[in-house]
């Protein structure tokens, strides 16, 4: 997210803290895509991702007082979405909580037909065939300048893995860029 957008975001957060629901709705519109791609990257169906996203946004509104505008709002929001997703898995007893810490990275990264359909919807887009997880990493790193350590924590990956994915992503984009330019 660019600096101007960041300022807008902070202003909206402050208004939402004062109880302005319309300001929070604007935040929902701004961050819907990031939250959805983040959840789709966990290999869940689009409808389920929407349910989790809805719960996450409602929870975020409840806890909006806890947001520190000097920190990353996106990181905070995605952590809520991740916890909401884990709660959903626990409710549906799809998660074995008896073992060690839950690793989202362990979920297979095969794209479902839904995510594939979403990804290929905009053929013109240079991001068209990127995986949901790649989109989120690109968004958080290139557009929001999130440090790799925080990115790794949010994506439940090691910092080294995030860097690796990011550099592969850059190489992929570069090939596309040269193809378009040439």
């Amino acid at each position: 997210m660019q600096n101007g957008e960041n300022r807008d975001c902070n202003a909206l957060i402050e208004l939402a803290k004062k109880g302005q629901k319309s300001a929070f709705t604007q935040l929902v519109k701004m961050y819907y895509g990031t939250v959805m791609y983040y959840l789709l990257g966990m290999n869940i169906k689009h409808a389920d991702a929407e349910d989790v996203a809805q719960e996450a946004f409602i929870n975020a509104f409840r806890k909006i007082d806890q947001v520190n505008t000097s920190g990353s709002f996106t990181g905070w929001l995605l952590r809520i979405a991740r916890n909401q997703f884990i709660d959903k898995l626990r409710r549906e007893k799809k998660l074995d909580t008896s073992g060690s810490q839950f690793e989202i990275a362990e979920i297979p990264d095969d794209r479902t037909p839904e995510t594939h359909a979403v990804s290929t919807a905009g053929v013109e887009s240079i991001f068209a065939d990127l995986k949901p997880r790649e989109r989120v990493i690109l968004e958080l790193r290139v557009f929001q300048g999130m440090p790799f350590c925080e990115l790794a924590e949010i994506m439940s990956m090691t910092e080294g893995n995030v860097r690796l994915v990011f550099h592969r992503l850059i190489a992929k984009l570069r090939a596309r860029f040269e193809e378009k330019a040439g």
Binding site: M1, T25, V28, K29, Y32, G33, T34, M36, Y37, E50, A53, Q54, V118, A121, G122, S125, I126, F127, L130, R135, V136, L138, E139, V142, F143, I170, L173, R174, F177
Partner: peptide, 22 residues
Amino acid sequence: CMVWARTKGSPTADLKPSQAFL
């Protein structure tokens, strides 16, 4: 390449919430 990517907008911006969701 990254400057070019930035001009294309956010890679997550193509997903918009439906009116029913809002």
